[in-house]
């Protein structure tokens, strides 16, 4: 299965990545090779094999429903480039 430029643009957009035009050809080639690899794996006969949801064969540990994280707003906001009135500030997301 070969991908084209449109596929690449769509995938890049969804991942919010910018692919420089001069790199597009190389990235497309890499992605085609990944798909070839997947095709290759799909030829393996998995009849009768249980689907694997997770490579580690263990079960999820449950946490007790208890509040263990007190208010730490000061510290959390300190990492942000812009804050106001206790909120993180980002560029306006609606018109």
């Amino acid at each position: 299965m070969a991908l084209d430029k449109n596929d690449l643009n769509k995938i890049a957009y969804l991942a919010r990545l910018e692919i420089a035009p001069e790199n597009a050809e190389r990235v497309l080639n890499d992605m085609d090779r990944i798909l070839d690899f997947v095709d290759h794996m799909q030829q393996v006969d998995t009849e009768g094999v249980e689907p694997l949801a997770h490579p580690i064969e263990s079960r999820q540990i449950l946490r007790e429903d208890r509040v263990t994280e007190p208010n730490q707003r000061e510290a959390l906001l300190a990492n942000a480039p812009a804050t106001e009135n206790g909120c993180f500030l980002v560029p306006k997301v609606i018109e």
Partner: peptide, 20 residues
């Protein structure tokens, strides 16, 4: 009382970012 994947509280109407 606490969130689905963390120990932060779920109280409604608190000051912004104090329950995270």
């Amino acid at each position: 009382q606490s969130k689905i994947f963390s120990g932060a509280p779920t109280t409604f109407g608190a000051e912004p970012n104090t329950q995270a």
